[in-house]
Design a protein around this nucleic acid. Structure first.
Lengths: 218, 218
DNA sequence: TCCATAGTTATCGTATACGATTTCGTACTT
DNA sequence: AAGTACGAAATCGTATACGATAACTATGGA
């Protein structure tokens, strides 16, 4: 994920702020004051500033000159852009990875998917989301193109910053998602052609977007 | 292209260094010494450092802790990753844009392609490359997803930094490229379905990669 | 009461300074 | 002569300081 060696304060600040955004401590719209974060971490403002700029490049933070940084908002348009882009890069990543996925990995993915199904019964959306990423991460383990994988991760991060927002969990969609995962695994097991797998994976993400759009329209 | 308002020195430094990389003043492997660049531009090192980090995020430079930054190299593997990713995002961008391209834009694109053909006769590879981007830029003018467009531009920048390297201009490929452009225009004019257009656009990029790989194998 | 304006405060943008780390060259030893 | 160790130079990483800009507040007038 293009991580430079840890250890530098700039790097630590990046990781710290990113974690706070993703775990929801800093919610969208939250004002990121350099001096304040620097004091919190015990650093000076310079490395913090660098970290914020990097987060900006990833789309997690919005920076306005002479004003400051805020955690990127939950603009529906942005959501659409992100989901659409994600559907494309996830589709490609899945298709590229598919021929390299062995039966052991398939079994692991299936186990994760089973856990997801259980999460639905106990209604644990946070864990469900985490497992969902795990599921796809297993599939992408041997993705032959790290650039594409990087784009996937960026999309995920962006979505993570929207957590606990209106975008999550359209009713019924989660169940469908689990079913689609199984279907995807069967395609991979059956060595379906790349195009079929790509379409299925793409559609899997696109369906979540469609479900949101349908709901938003009401 | 995610440009923050110009005017800040950090921004100017970013633009200046990026331009030097793309135009070839700083060739791959070139050592970017912060203090030196700062002196050149008349700035202090802080904004320059920020600019370099941003270029690192875009993949144009490589940064090593306590050592410094160098212009990203011409590693064949990186080339493969970039081209493959580009084929995917260009394919998607083209398919998404296609329904929004009007006949005027088609005519403009065709004119650009005609100029490209002329470039081949006079053997003007630099202009040919620039026109190639123009051609696709016309098609992407009304791309409904700016994120995807941004990814396309990043890929182009990355390739641009490889200019005058071994990767450019596999013999015969350029002629083929012009023909594919025309075929693509006809698909768009004929309102072919999104999938067909996406495949054609993707293949257009992939073919250049394949041509390189075939040549490299010898 | 509301609006405009001036002054104050908060925050960013950049410069300078210095400590930390790496790299390179030189001298010494084997 | 080759290898190693030590030291100097170069460069980065971070802290601190200050000027610039925007946001806020209070005050006076309509």
């Amino acid at each position: 994920m293009t991580e430079t060696a840890v250890g530098s304060k700039s790097q630590q600040a990046y990781a710290a702020v990113k974690a706070r955004i993703i775990e929801g401590t800093y919610t969208p719209g939250y004002r990121l004051v350099l001096a304040k974060i620097a004091e919190d971490l015990g650093f000076s403002v310079v490395p913090v500033r660098e970290a914020i700029r990097r987060l900006e490049a990833e789309g997690l933070v919005k920076f306005e000159r002479n004003v400051g940084a805020t955690v990127s908002g939950i603009d529906p348009t942005e959501y659409l852009y992100t989901m659409q882009t994600l559907s494309i890069v996830e589709g490609a990543a899945t298709a590229l990875s598919a021929p390299l996925i062995d039966s052991v990995a398939i079994a692991r993915a299936r186990a994760v998917n089973e856990e997801m199904r259980e999460c639905l019964e106990h209604f644990d959306p946070v864990r469900f989301t985490a497992l969902n990423q795990d599921f796809h991460s297993v599939l992408f383990e041997h993705c032959p193109n790290p650039h594409i994988l990087d784009l996937v991760h960026r999309g995920w991060n962006r979505l993570a910053s929207l957590r606990s927002s209106t975008f999550r969990f359209v009713p019924g969609r989660a169940q469908e998602s689990v079913r689609e995962h199984e279907a995807l695994l069967q395609l991979i097991e059956g060595a379906a052609d790349a195009d079929t797998i790509e379409k299925a994976a793409r559609q899997h993400r696109a369906a979540t977007l469609d479900a949101y759009l349908a709901q938003a329209k009401q």
